[in-house]
Design a protein around this nucleic acid. Sequence first.
DNA 1: ATGCCTTATTTCATAAGA
Length: 276
Amino acid sequence: MRLATWNVNSIAARLPRLLEWLEQTAPHVVCLQETKIADALFPRAEIEALGYEVAPHGLGQWNGVAVLSRVGLEGVTAGLPGAPPTTPPEARALGARCAGVRVWSVYVPNGREVGHPQYVYKLDWLRALHAVLAAELESERELVVCGDFNVAPTDADVWDPEAFATSTHITVPERQALAELRALGLEDVVPRPLKYDRPFTYWDYRAGNFHKNLGMRIDLVYATAEVAAAVTDAYVDRDARKGKGPSDHAPVVVDLRDPAPPGGLLPSGAASGEGG
DNA sequence: ATGCCTTATTTCATAAGA
């Protein structure tokens, strides 16, 4: 199964590129962020025409997430229970079950500035995410949380930590929030870069930052051990950041071995012909 | 060439992104 996550920065603006990318990349499940569109206006027909079921969660022109799947889409839950209330309300999370895997698409608040009310909101939101995932992980074995976390997990995930010394995205409390998610049993599925040494997923539109590779790794895939063990490849599709009218984020693509056959794992020593 | 920002709405200007 091929799983992907992509902050498209407006699905209306990105639709031609998204459709082209879906046809070329052929993911089975796609988590989208910053769709920036109300559900009633979501370009459902164009995406369904490519064989996907669509679960959007958008409340207006800002934020917005979605899950696309061509391997089943059940148990959709829009929104993050326990998230801090906002005016107007914000659509930043959606969960669904696709081919037996519980999949979350999340768009963590930016935070704006350290100490800003938006920064407090960001940390509160991450706490709410932690609580929801902790509850689900009591019964879910195959779960993956994909999205724009707006946090660079380590200094190596920022092109220049000095440039962010007083900024959000790298502070101890933000990184601690990620560490607490990992402490639930979630593993950071680090993709390989297709060029250069680090798997950045975001480059500012300004000043030719993409072309200078001045990026950040803030789009993450956090997976349970069962899912992480099935990963055969993971990469940042930086080609999608090139050309005319790109998002400022690149997709992260993760390939997983086919799930175990119905009835569970084969008995130890009885496996044959596996490894495909 | 990958090529120096783009999205949105309160639109010919401004706020926000990270």
